[in-house]
Amino acid sequence: MSTSFHTIDAANRRFEELFNSGKLDELVNLYTSEGKLLPPDKNKYEGREQIKKFWQAARDAGVDNLRLTTGTVLEAGNDRLIETSSYQHSLDKGNYQVIWKRTSEGKNQWQLDIDIFN
């Protein structure tokens, strides 16, 4: 498996840990400051505050025990990765695609830039 796969798989483990423990202030920092979340409710959540509100509402609705299964990670230039994977939690399961962006924020790490799931 590629280094990109391992990098994103490790980021997914961190996302799970933060979501499942309710540390949403830390979780939203995994997104770029201009990040976008496009969930099945047909709304677009832009920026960390809106994304945090979405994830808080999900937790309030009983979503827990989130598990992400990293599928494929494709390199799309020097500063983008495209991940296509699946998720499962206490209320549902489905698929998602994330465009990850390498940023200088957070020590030149990969952050979720566009997060789409069904």
Rank of each mutant, 00 (worst) to 15 (best):
M1K: 13
S2L: 01
S2N: 12
S2V: 00
T3F: 10
T3L: 13
S4D: 12
S4T: 08
D9S: 11
A10M: 07
R13M: 09
R14K: 11
F15I: 08
E16I: 07
E16P: 07
E17I: 04
L18A: 00
L18S: 02
L24C: 02
L24Y: 05
D25Q: 05
D25M: 02
E26P: 08
E26C: 09
E26H: 06
E26K: 13
E26F: 03
L27M: 08
L27Y: 08
V28W: 02
V28E: 02
N29V: 04
L30C: 04
L30D: 11
L30I: 13
T32Q: 05
E34D: 15
K36S: 13
K36Y: 10
L37W: 05
P40T: 03
P40N: 01
D41M: 00
D41I: 03
N43Q: 10
K44G: 04
Y45L: 04
Y45G: 00
G47D: 02
R48K: 09
E49F: 08
E49W: 06
Q50S: 09
K52W: 00
K53E: 13
K53N: 11
W55D: 03
W55P: 00
Q56W: 02
Q56S: 12
Q56G: 06
Q56H: 04
A58M: 10
A58Y: 10
A58P: 05
A58I: 08
R59G: 09
D60F: 02
D60C: 02
D60L: 03
G62I: 00
V63Q: 04
N65R: 11
L66N: 05
L66R: 03
L68E: 03
L68R: 01
T69D: 14
G71S: 03
G71V: 01
G71K: 04
T72C: 01
V73H: 00
V73L: 03
L74C: 06
L74D: 14
A76T: 06
A76R: 09
A76S: 12
A76P: 00
G77F: 02
G77W: 00
G77K: 04
D79K: 13
D79E: 14
R80N: 11
R80Y: 14
L81K: 11
L81V: 04
L81P: 08
I82F: 12
I82M: 07
E83L: 07
T84H: 12
T84W: 13
S85Q: 01
S85N: 01
S86W: 01
Y87N: 10
S90T: 07
L91A: 15
L91D: 01
D92W: 11
G94E: 02
G94H: 07
G94F: 03
G94R: 06
N95H: 12
N95M: 11
N95E: 11
Q97A: 14
Q97R: 12
I99H: 07
K101Q: 14
E105D: 12
K107W: 10
N108A: 10
Q111T: 08
Q111M: 15
D113L: 11
I114V: 15
D115K: 13
D115N: 12
I116W: 06
F117L: 05
F117H: 12
F117I: 00
N118Q: 04
